[in-house]
Measured scan of single mutants.
Amino acid sequence: MTDQQAEARSYLSEEMIAEFKAAFDMFDADGGGDISVKELGTVMRMLGQTPTKEELDAIIEEVDEDGSGTIDFEEFLVMMVRQ
């Protein structure tokens, strides 16, 4: 866990972390443990947004600390705390 990830967790109660985990699992449609650009786009479109591929890439790049091209749960928490 990076310093950013530990800091993000410090702002959240266990209840909030559990709620974010449920949301993360909804995004992680294939159950792979991370959110891909495609999965992020699908959920955002379900919520009425129309992000471009470039916008989706930028969202993932902003929090993808390990350079995997996807968002894992710890990175997702950082993203949610920043919102």
Rank of each mutant, 00 (worst) to 15 (best):
A22N: 15
G48V: 00
D64C: 11
M80E: 02
Q83T: 14
D30S: 06
A23M: 06
G32M: 02
D72R: 13
E7F: 07
D57S: 12
I17E: 04
G33Y: 02
S68V: 12
K21V: 00
E75A: 08
E19H: 01
G48C: 02
Q83F: 12
S13N: 11
M16K: 12
L12R: 02
E65D: 10
S68E: 03
D25Y: 03
K21L: 02
M16D: 07
Q5N: 05
R9T: 02
R9N: 11
A58Y: 05
F20P: 00
L47P: 00
T42K: 15
M16N: 03
G31R: 09
D34P: 02
E62T: 13
D34R: 12
G48D: 12
M80F: 07
E15V: 09
G31S: 04
E14P: 14
G32S: 12
G33C: 02
E14H: 08
A29V: 08
V63I: 15
A58I: 05
V43M: 12
E19R: 08
E55G: 11
Q49V: 08
S68P: 06
P51S: 05
F27M: 07
T50H: 12
T50R: 15
I71K: 00
A6Y: 07
D64E: 03
R82D: 13
G69C: 03
G32D: 08
Q4R: 13
A58P: 04
E65S: 06
D28A: 09
Q5K: 11
I17G: 01
E39G: 04
M16P: 00
L77C: 04
R82T: 04
P51W: 07
G31W: 02
G48Q: 10
R9W: 05
E54H: 05
L77W: 02
D57F: 10
A29E: 14
G41H: 14
L77I: 07
G48S: 05
G33Q: 04
S68Q: 14
D3F: 13
A29Y: 15
E14V: 07
S13L: 01
A29Q: 12
Q5A: 08
L47F: 06
F27W: 11
Q4W: 08
M1K: 14
M16Q: 12
E61C: 15
E65W: 15
D34H: 04
E14L: 03
D72Q: 14
A23N: 03
T52D: 07
E19D: 13
L77H: 01
Q4T: 11
F24G: 00
E61R: 09
L56I: 15
Y11Q: 10
T42S: 10
V43C: 15
K21W: 01
M16R: 11
F76E: 01
M1G: 09
M80P: 00
F76D: 00
M44G: 01
E19F: 00
K38S: 15
F73P: 00
M79H: 09
L77R: 04
M1E: 09
G31T: 03
A18Q: 06
F20Q: 01
T70N: 08
G33K: 02
T52L: 05
M26Y: 15
E61P: 04
E39D: 05
D28P: 07
G33L: 02
M44E: 00
A8Q: 06
I59Q: 05
L40W: 00
G48R: 06
D3K: 13
E39I: 02
G69K: 09
Q83I: 13
I35A: 01
A23H: 15
R45S: 08
G67F: 02
S68I: 13
A29P: 08
F20N: 01
M46K: 12
T42M: 08
I71V: 13
A58C: 07
A8V: 11
E14M: 07
G67S: 12
A29N: 01
L56Q: 06
G41K: 09
E14N: 07
I17D: 00
T52H: 05
D72I: 07
F27T: 04
K53V: 08
V81F: 03
E15G: 06
E55T: 05
F27L: 13
E65N: 15
M46Y: 10
S36L: 13
E54P: 15
I60K: 04
G69P: 04
M26A: 14
G31E: 03
L12F: 14
L56S: 02
G48Y: 01
A18F: 10
I60D: 03
E14D: 14
D64A: 04
S68R: 09
S13K: 05
S10F: 04
